[in-house]
């Protein structure tokens, strides 16, 4: 079993965030908390992709005038940034839909707790 190099700690952070979210989705009984845990998982994916885009010593992916220094600048990878930009906005809107569903459930059953919801459904 190989150990993580210091340059791979961002991946460990992403894995920890992912599992924190997964723990929340499995162990919490309140549906609103499950939704927040799902958002934490989305953030884990975003952190992972942005970590893939990093280039050491690189500048943000915006072309700069380098005539003065004569050194070809190194840029971070623009592709994961573009993908994650859309992922963030889509996660916002899907969170909106999920919140609307939760509001609907709460209006009908007056609770968001899973076990109570199951009891109400059996009635």
């Amino acid at each position: 079993m190989s150990l993580l190099a210091p340059g791979q700690l961002q991946y460990a952070l992403a894995a920890l965030l992912m599992l924190t979210g997964l723990y929340g989705m499995l162990a919490k009984t309140n549906l609103a908390r499950k939704l927040m845990a799902m958002n934490v998982m989305q953030v884990a994916v975003i952190v992972f992709f942005i970590a893939l885009a990093v280039r050491s010593g690189g500048s943000p992916p915006i072309e700069i005038e380098h005539a003065a220094t004569q050194i070809e600048p190194a840029y971070a990878n623009p592709l994961p940034h573009a993908l994650m930009l859309t992922a963030i906005v889509v996660s916002v809107s899907t969170t909106g839909v999920a919140l609307a569903l939760l509001v609907r459930v709460h209006r009908r059953f007056r609770t968001l707790d899973e076990s109570k919801l199951l009891d109400r459904l059996r009635e």
Binding site: V89, V92, S93, G96, L99, A100, V103, R107
Partner: peptide, 16 residues
């Protein structure tokens, strides 16, 4: 589009 949708979601959630 994004501005309209986000305001719409906020209004839908705030005025239920």
């Amino acid at each position: 589009g994004v501005a309209g949708v986000l305001v719409l979601i906020f209004d839908a959630l705030a005025r239920w």
